[in-house]
């Protein structure tokens, strides 16, 4: 059992939970994830570690309530517990010796981009964060991201906050006007795909963090296989970070739809049970 010691509601759908997990807190690094099982009948889902505190023995996960399990987790309160948290899994992000980096977060992806920005910023790199949202009311972690970046750009699809447009609009402008040696993009697959397409002509190293369907998170099920440079990789052990210029994003988008009908079904049942 992993006790929840802090909970923050970031927007109407996104919640941050900080749980006691001393072994994981000691080992976790930016880019890694945990496998979480909410309760006895729960499924195992991967969630990226968005922050960790080795001294306090806690890790923080950010949950967007889109499916049955993420809704269950979002409903938990301080003092309650998550049944299982296993990790840290996957490979930590390899920043190389990046001096000037752009970190891009899309929606809830900002929660995962945050530790990346923090790690680079603390290592002395010049960090620009581009955070994209649909609209003003779902903007999250603005202060946190500001604290770990030299420049922060916020975009919204509808222009209700920051700059109207897509993260790739800002990205292209920045790449046109300056030299960058690393881009990290975390968010919806479609966003990562277009970030990679945008950076490709500039030849800037681009890391994306993938979040496919998983069960064990240790290489055992093969459900998370993704095609990278024409070869099949397991995101859980070979990733979750990959070279964005080599990932087959279209296949990843298709694979992520596998259980769409079943998940919609489970959510409907849940809604009925809740009245």
């Amino acid at each position: 059992m992993y006790r929840i010691v802090d909970k923050k509601v970031l927007n109407s759908a996104v919640t941050s939970l900080t749980v006691e997990a001393p072994f994981i807190a000691k080992k976790a690094r930016a880019g890694q994830f945990v496998i979480v099982r909410a309760d006895e009948k729960g499924e195992r889902i991967p969630l990226t570690v968005s922050d960790f505190d080795p001294a306090a023995g806690t890790v923080t996960i950010v949950i967007q309530a889109v499916g049955l399990t993420t809704k269950k987790l979002s409903a938990l309160n301080i003092g309650e517990s998550i049944l299982d948290v296993a990790g840290p899994l996957g490979c930590p992000t390899e920043f190389g010796d990046a001096k000037k980096a752009i970190i891009i977060g899309g929606g809830v992806g900002c929660a995962i981009a945050f530790p990346q920005a923090k790690a680079l910023y603390n290592a002395g790199a010049d960090v620009t964060v581009i955070a994209g949202f649909r609209s003003k009311d779902i903007v999250i972690l603005e202060e946190e991201m500001k604290a770990v970046s030299n420049n922060l750009y916020i975009t919204t699809d509808d222009g209700s906050y920051g700059e109207r447009g897509l993260v790739t609009d800002v990205l292209k402008r920045l790449l046109d006007s300056g030299e960058y040696d690393l881009v990290i993009a975390i968010g919806p697959v479609i966003m990562m795909k277009f970030v990679a397409l945008t950076t490709k002509p500039y030849g800037v190293k681009t890391i994306v963090s993938l979040n496919p369907i998983m069960i064990d998170g240790t290489g055992m099920c093969g459900g998370c296989r993704v095609k990278v440079d024409g070869k099949t990789k397991f995101a859980c052990v070979d990733g979750p970070d990959f070279d964005g210029h080599l990932v087959d994003f279209d296949e990843l988008m298709r694979r992520n739809t596998l259980f769409r009908e079943e998940e919609a079904h489970a959510c409907r049942l849940e809604a009925q049970n809740n009245g």
Binding site: M220, G222, T232, L258
Partner: peptide
């Protein structure tokens, strides 16, 4: 625990599972 795949065309289509995944 690591499952093997055949490496044939179409193996990443939706509906192809390792026995490990299916049984788990």
């Amino acid at each position: 625990g690591l499952p093997m795949f055949m490496g044939i065309e179409g193996e990443d289509a939706l509906g192809v599972y390792s026995a490990n995944e299916f049984l788990t």
